[in-house]
Amino acid sequence: MVAVNMTVNGKPASAELDPRTLLVQFLRDHLRLTGTHVGCDTSQCGACVVHMDGHAVKSCTVLAATCSGSQVTTIEGLANAAGLHPMQEAFRENHGLQCGFCTPGMIMTAVDLVHRKGFALDETTIREELEGNLCRCTGYHNIVKAIAAGAQAMAAEGPAQQVAE
């Protein structure tokens, strides 16, 4: 067993874990944060994307033990008391989801994308940056629209949103 301490969605989280425990298993099974999903075994679908120390990572391909001392944000931690994150709102407004299974990973990837590449995202950039996220329902059309709109909305909200993480 290994002692793991990290901060998840702003709250301390610690446990004694089998060292095999993946971050996604820690989140889902121990913290009951089931918004982070598992869609494949080979780190390709992106349904499990969360933020670790401000970067999007695939939580199925990180040991929970590796995250000791880290700040982890999941889809459940994205909205704040004031309401939904602009990217969440953009996904709803643009019908960027159907079955919803890939959606948490898509939204976490999209927010990370805006942090890295800024608010003005063209379609080609968005599509290329979704390399690691699969969706089987939407044909990506509305996801791309949602991310472009969400990025604009994040710009409008300004730096306050950046502090949230």
Partner: peptide, 11 residues
Amino acid sequence: DQRFITGRGQY
């Protein structure tokens, strides 16, 4: 959508 975009779906 509210539950899906906030990670509160129940699969």
